[in-house]
Every structure is written in C-alpha cells, then in structure tokens.
Simulated assay, not measured.
Amino acid sequence: MQNNSSESKQFIIKRLEEEYNYKKITFLIENPDKSEKDFIENEITIIKKTNDEFDRKCNLTDDEVYEEIKKEKKYLNSCKYATTSEIEEFLKHSLKQYREKFKHTEKKGFKSIFYNTKLKNFLKTEKNINVKENKSLLLKGEKLNLSERYTIANKILKIDSKLRILNIQDLQKYQLLAYILGCDKDNARNLMNGTYKSKDRDLTDFFNDLGLNQ
C-alpha cells in the first residue's frame, strides 16, 4: 500500500515537471521581457487563487451549493421542461457530484508545494550565482558605480568618441550607451553630457596597473 502511494506521488511529480517545462516555454515566448522567476511567481499566484476558490467550494453548505448549481447553464436548461420532482432529483444528484469534485485531498497540495519548492531552489541558485559574479566585479573590495564603468569604457574602448561620430540622432546614441552599460537612457544621456552625479574614486592607479597612463 505504501509503495502504491509512493509511485502515485512520483507519477504526479513527473506530470508536474512536464507541465512546468511546457508552461515555462510558453510563458517566456509570450513574455520575452520576463524571466523564469516571473513565471514561477505567476504560477504560484494562480495556484493560490485556484486553491482558495477550491477551499471555498469545499466548505459551502448544501443550500449554498444549490445556489451555485442554480446559476449553471445545465440547470437552467433542465428547468425548462422538467417537473418539480425531476428538478429536485437533479439538484440532489448535482449536489453529490459537487461534493465528489470539491473535497479536501492531499493531491491538491502537491502543485503548490512543487512550485514553491521550484521558487526556493531558483532563488538559492540565483543568490549563489550573484555572489560569484559580484566578487569578480569588485575593485578594491567595492563595486564600480555607473560613472566609473563609463570612465573605464572610455579609457579602454573610446566609447564616447565612437558614439559621437555615429550618423544617428542623439537619442539613439544614448540608447546604445544604455545597452552597453546596462543602464536607463536618461542616465546614459547624463553620462555623455557630463551631468551625471556620483562620487567616483580616483582610478589613476587602476589605469597605471594596466599601463594606460603611460
């Protein structure tokens, strides 16, 4: 009996994995600006709403269930030609079906646990990646600010002068710089115009080590 339960859980998890991969691909295609994390959080929201509604229906009284049934198209169509006793019989049968459909089960919780575990694991992996990346981006123990990155790009790659000679509108130049530095267009414009405000470190020693001040 225990083996059957274990096999059942494994089957459910397998199906959830298949569903996860299919839905994730569909979500990312339809929302190119979103990430896998956005997909998982969206699914968790949907699952919570579905579970909340499921729980509400589980806890309805018989009279409340009858009211739910009476709103259905199937009931309204049946009332057109049925007698009073037939309608009563229909309601009793519908109530039984309703109770079978909406009852508390262990299976219902699997999906919520599955997606919350996915999110937890994703955030853990993302945190580990960020820690590794952040360490490699530190200069003398501190992260480079936007203006410092711009200064380095100019010193090594001559970004500013190369952008200025392009035969395109200024807004397009700001957008290109924004792409390169991973910032918004307004900050890119302020950098190129010299109006970006920040407390920059002296990078002389950094450039000396690279042999760029010789």
Results as ranks from 00 to 15, higher is better:
Asp55Trp: 06
Phe206Ile: 04
Tyr98Gly: 09
Phe110Ser: 06
Asn134Trp: 00
Lys120Met: 10
Arg56Gly: 13
Asn42Leu: 02
Glu68Cys: 06
Glu19Phe: 14
Ser136His: 00
Asn4Phe: 09
Asn31Phe: 08
Glu41Lys: 15
Glu17Asp: 14
Leu139Val: 15
Glu36Tyr: 04
Glu86Gly: 02
Ile168Met: 12
Ala153Met: 12
Asp205Pro: 02
Arg99Glu: 08
Glu7Asp: 11
Glu7Ser: 10
Leu177Val: 10
Leu166Asn: 05
Asn167Trp: 01
Lys120Cys: 03
Arg189Pro: 03
Ile168Cys: 03
Lys34Val: 09
Leu123Cys: 04
Gly109Lys: 14
Tyr150Asp: 01
Thr195Ile: 11
Asp200Trp: 04
Lys9Glu: 04
Leu146Glu: 03
Val131Glu: 07
Leu16Lys: 10
Asp186Thr: 15
Asn3Ala: 09
Gln97Tyr: 06
Leu95Gln: 01
Thr83His: 06
Glu148Asn: 08
Lys185Leu: 07
Cys79Glu: 08
Thr117Pro: 01
Gln97Ala: 11
Asn77Ile: 09
Ser8Gly: 00
Glu19Ser: 13
Lys185Pro: 01
Ala82Asn: 09
Ser112Pro: 00
Lys197Met: 12
Gln169Gly: 07
Thr125Leu: 06
Lys135Tyr: 02
Ser8Ala: 06
Thr26Lys: 15
Leu166Asp: 03
Thr84Ser: 04
Asn128Ile: 09
Lys124Pro: 00
Lys140Phe: 05
Asn121Ser: 11
Lys199Asp: 14
Leu157Gly: 01
Leu191Tyr: 04
Lys103Glu: 05
Asp202Arg: 08
Asp205Trp: 06
Asn213Gly: 01
Asn193Ile: 10
Glu67Pro: 05
Gln172His: 10
Leu28Val: 09
Asn213Lys: 14
Asn121Met: 11
Asn121Gly: 02
Arg15Thr: 08
Thr84Ala: 02
Ile29Glu: 11
Tyr66Met: 13
Asn59Cys: 06
Lys14Asn: 12
Glu100Phe: 12
Met192Ala: 09
Phe39Trp: 03
Gln97Glu: 15
Lys74Pro: 00
Asp160Gln: 07
His104Leu: 14
Gln10Val: 03
Leu171Asn: 15
Ser6Met: 13
Lys37Leu: 10
Tyr66Ala: 04
Glu86Gln: 14
Arg149Gly: 10
